[in-house]
Design a binder for these strands. Structure first.
Lengths: 133, 133
DNA sequence: TCAGATATTTACGTAAAAGTCAATTATTTG
DNA sequence: CAAATAATTGACTTTTACGTAAATATCTGA
């Protein structure tokens, strides 16, 4: 008994609608080797795995990663290499990425705090106006 | 008695060294109106406030914000407008940005968790190799 | 005073990440 | 089955965020 499939295939336009991106963008990611939809004739058919990869790409983009960086991170999730040196290198790279992400989280928290402060100022100003009315 | 100044001015090259960016980059941000160093003759002199703004820009960049977005966020920190409609608009925009940042934080946490998993796999693989030796 | 370092302006160049457009080729459906 | 609808490839264009180079000016210590 194999794992149940949610849905077999998606068309390109289904994905453009779901994620709010253009066909050009999706084809661009394919050219870059980030997704590998199968073909029926010339037409692309996207499997659940392609859809998941697409979500991953968009997440990376939201975090400001370049295509090259996203590719690099994707490669970290594949079967780990068999050779010890390569393995140790991979682990180092993973830790570097984690540090980068943790810095981003610090940046986010700082920025949110500043936004909170800006909002307070505005609300206070608004209250003044309200009082004055 | 005014607040104490840490250091009066920074030169452009001091800032390139401190932040690891080029002079071109700093001048570009000035052209974009994000920083406004004063001049002695033609030479730029950067005040502490310019330095802080630079730090803010770089933080924004790490989070994947464009120059235009960074400018928009910066504008949120200025004196709030006096007109009520403008104030309400500002508050809405602030909340939108906060949501965006919170989404980024979710993205970060997901990605970190995936990296943790990838690292575990690699460490397990490494242990196997170690045992085999 | 002058060589070397530092800055400035202007202008052209470039890489990344798509957008846009045109010409074809299925597909489907009323 | 003709006409609309959807997909493909390929080429060219655009935007963003700087890089790079040339010519000129300023400063600074030996």
């Amino acid at each position: 008994m194999t794992a149940p499939q949610k849905r077999e295939f998606h068309t390109i336009s289904e994905l453009t609608k779901e994620f709010g991106i253009s066909t050009r963008t999706i084809r661009f990611y394919e050219d870059e080797g980030l997704i590998k939809p199968v073909r029926r004739g010339r037409t692309r058919l996207f499997r659940p795995t392609d859809r998941r990869r697409l979500m991953f790409i968009l997440r990376g983009k939201r975090l400001g990663f370049s295509i090259a960086e996203i590719r690099e991170i994707m490669n970290m999730y594949k079967e780990p290499p068999g050779e010890e040196g390569q393995l140790r290198l991979l682990i180092r790279r993973i830790n570097e990425k984690r540090l980068e992400l943790e810095q981003k989280r610090i940046d986010i928290d700082l920025t949110i705090r500043e936004l909170d402060h800006a909002e307070e100022q505005s609300l206070a100003r608004l209250a003044e106006l309200g009082v004055g009315t």
